[in-house]
């Protein structure tokens, strides 16, 4: 009995996910279908990538607020350079001519804006890590600063003539295909974006569990002093953590642009809060040092199921917000209980 309870509490997150699905299915049995499942997975894909980036800050007892705005910036950068040449309002009107003039460049062009977007957000991630480790600014504040700065830069870029803050649309079909296409077709198709999220998750699992960097990250989050006296370079590891987080935000932003077929400077707004919520609900401890990739996946899926499922059964969206809030607070309250030993 005691063992069963322990198993239940250690895997609570997965049970919550299953129970949620069952409850929704009970109200409307049509919820259990491949279409619904696929929709939830597609909606959750970019969220997973963002949450995996946001994990680093929480794992080291901080919080990264810059993720949402980084997503937005990466979306705008990639979209601005990947419009179809025939589109009327181009961000770079001369770009099609350039691509036509240099034949090789034209054929590989799809990759270049994506890389530029990811490199830019990686640089901002490096900046986060540098500010935090070099100047000792708390992560919450450092990333609050970069969040505002990134939004400012993004808005300036977005407002450049001739675009002048018009939503960027008319994206190339090969680019939007990344976000909307799938392997196979019909009921049994597997969307590319889901595959990408799965590959990123596998990569992150290996990074966190099989490499020195991952283990050092857990060590720093678990006991920073022990890490220091064991000879770990805490500053360098911190910078690397935030840089990887930045790269993940960049990738997520690119995929958001591809999935929605456009971008504005307000893309990604408040995503940082969803990412943090998914992490803490997924069992990443706000006191640092604990958290698993699979837990974060479950955390993201829980919110995916809530968003999609509650809409599916026709619950007022405002009620969904209240339920989400309660889930976030309960998850952390339960987590903190483990550390609150009475004096």
């Amino acid at each position: 009995m005691k063992k069963a309870l322990q198993f239940l509490s250690e895997n609570a997150i997965y049970f919550v996910l299953v129970v949620l699905i069952l409850v929704i299915a009970f109200v409307d049995s049509r919820f259990i279908s491949i279409t619904c499942l696929r929709d939830i997975l597609v909606q959750s894909s970019t969220r997973v990538i963002i949450a995996l980036g946001a994990m680093f800050a929480i794992l080291t007892a901080g919080a990264d607020l810059s993720s949402g705005r980084m997503v937005g910036f990466a979306a705008v950068i990639s979209a601005s350079m990947l419009q179809a040449p025939t589109y009327l309002r181009l961000f770079y009107p001369d770009l099609p001519k350039l691509l036509e003039a240099v034949p090789l460049l034209g054929s590989i062009w799809l990759v270049i804006p994506i890389l530029i977007a990811i490199i830019v957000t990686t640089i901002f991630g490096l900046l986060n890590g540098f500010i935090i480790s070099r100047f000792g600014v708390p992560p919450f504040i450092a990333t609050l600063g970069t969040m505002v700065i990134v939004y400012g830069i993004n808005s300036i870029y977005f407002n450049l003539p001739p675009n002048n803050s018009q939503p960027i649309g008319g994206l190339r079909a090969d680019f939007t295909g990344l976000g909307t296409g799938a392997f196979g077709s019909g009921d049994f198709s597997l969307p590319y974006i889901v595959v990408i999220a799965m590959l990123v998750s596998i990569f992150m699992w290996i990074l966190m569990n099989k490499t020195r960097f991952g283990k050092n990250t857990y060590a720093i989050g678990g006991n920073i002093n022990a890490a220091k006296v064991s000879g770990i370079n805490v500053a360098r590891t911190t910078v690397a953590m935030y840089a990887i987080a930045g790269a993940l935000y960049g990738l997520a932003g690119v995929l958001e642009a591809a999935r929605t077929g456009g971008a504005t400077n307000n893309y990604g707004n408040m995503y940082e809060l969803d990412a943090i919520a998914a992490c803490v609900v997924g069992g990443v401890s706000t006191t640092g040092g604990i958290g698993t990739i699979q837990g974060i996946l479950a955390g993201v899926l829980i919110f995916g199921v809530i968003n999609y499922g509650l809409t599916f059964i026709g619950l007022d969206p405002y009620w969904q917000l209240i339920i989400k809030g309660i889930i976030i607070i309960s998850a952390v309250a339960v987590d903190i209980r483990k550390y609150l030993t009475k004096k």
Binding site: Y218, A219, N223, A226, I232, G289, I290
Partner: peptide, 21 residues
């Protein structure tokens, strides 16, 4: 160390080889 605590959530071997895995 007298007062330094280990990293409680990780395994014994990870604690021992920390910094030189």
């Amino acid at each position: 160390h007298q007062e330094l605590h280990p990293i409680p959530f990780r395994s014994v071997m990870e604690n021992i080889w920390l910094g030189r895995f």
